[in-house]
Write a protein that binds this DNA or RNA. Structure first.
Lengths: 192, 192
DNA sequence: CGTATTTATTAACATAGTTTAAGGGTTGTA
DNA sequence: TACAACCCTTAAACTATGTTAATAAATACG
């Protein structure tokens, strides 16, 4: 539970009362590998903070293939922001890739905290801005770069993740097949 | 100037005083075709509201090729949100595709308006959420769909834009060459 | 510890998308 | 109105990526 406070204090300081208020609205959960914390068709009613472990958020197409939109590991947030704010059913899944520990905040509780601790508005605004910029850079990469460049960029940007994730998951994130990622990795290893 | 008020009132009602306050912080500009309202290397100090005309936001790669990240036509907002909030130099350009009329709000003025008209916080939060969802859907399309599907989706999602924009610009947005878009269009026309 | 499941790699072949070059059509603007 | 700049299309050759199938290696977990 201390994890989330430490995280918030990287942005702004909090009083003891504020910390207690936050703690009272946040729930700790242990999540098994492959367990889902959001499924298609359900409204995303929580914001999730990853204390330990790793998650993927993905869509499933008509053919049943998964497409990874985002990963989240320690000290990262994950939620289907669209569904969360619109309160419409999500089209996405969020699933644990590793045994994990999360802290979750329900929508109403988050809004309650926003009202009582205005600083949190700012923090979540900054979090959202960062995610926005990340997404925009990814679009730019997708429309302008080759798969190999995107892979190298992923390694650089998420050295953490890239050593923890199976390549199948990375391939899905990059929008290529695992076989082709294999080919790329071979090229890179023989050519350097 | 009325345009932006009408736009805001689609979300929430405003008093006369509030409208006057907004009007006092907003500047009207006429922009010629090909004129830039943001260039790489400069900090994006304004949020732009398009009253009339059309803009593209793009990055230029090492080879000098442009890659369109976003279009904005009537009643849409455009800015490099990353640069705007971080106050770091932008890597993007925003350029008029048609002779245009915009209303611009400077950063400090926007923050001033946020303080004095809290409703505006909500409106901009919603605007940003919509842009976020749009971006996320675009990433999903990019990693899961063929260029033809992406093109069809663009036609559906932006019927307006697609009839106004040269195909070269659409191709750049989709991340394909104009020649290949031509091939796609031919296929679609002969096959239906 | 051992087995079921997942993961990584390879190769041959298929499809999607790019490059280059050329010609004809449109459009902006002096 | 005319010219320059831009835009659209075609086609052939080329490169990037996908598909299928098979096998070996690594990992989860009872």
């Amino acid at each position: 539970m201390q994890a989330i406070i430490t995280y918030f204090q990287k942005y702004l300081p909090f009083s003891i009362e504020e910390k207690e208020l936050i703690a009272s609205k946040v729930t700790l959960r242990n999540i098994k590998r492959k367990q889902m914390i959001l499924q298609e068709g359900l409204v995303c009613k929580h914001y999730f903070f990853v204390v330990e472990g790793c998650f993927k958020m993905y869509a499933v197409d008509e053919k049943g293939n998964q497409h990874n939109l985002q990963f989240a590991a320690e000290n990262d947030w994950i939620a289907d922001i669209g569904s969360f704010h619109s309160e419409k059913p999500s089209k996405l899944f969020i699933e644990a890739i590793e045994p994990s520990v999360i802290l979750q905040v329900e929508q109403q509780d988050l809004y309650f905290l926003y009202l009582n601790i205005p600083k949190l508005n700012i923090i979540f605004k900054v979090i959202t801005e960062h995610k926005f910029i990340e997404l925009q850079n990814r679009v730019l990469q997708n429309i302008s770069s080759t798969a190999q460049q995107r892979y190298l960029n992923f390694l650089e940007q998420y050295p953490n993740l890239s050593s923890r994730l199976p390549n199948t998951q990375i391939a899905s994130y990059l929008g290529i097949t695992p076989e082709f990622l294999s080919k790329i990795r071979k090229e890179l290893s023989t050519h350097n």
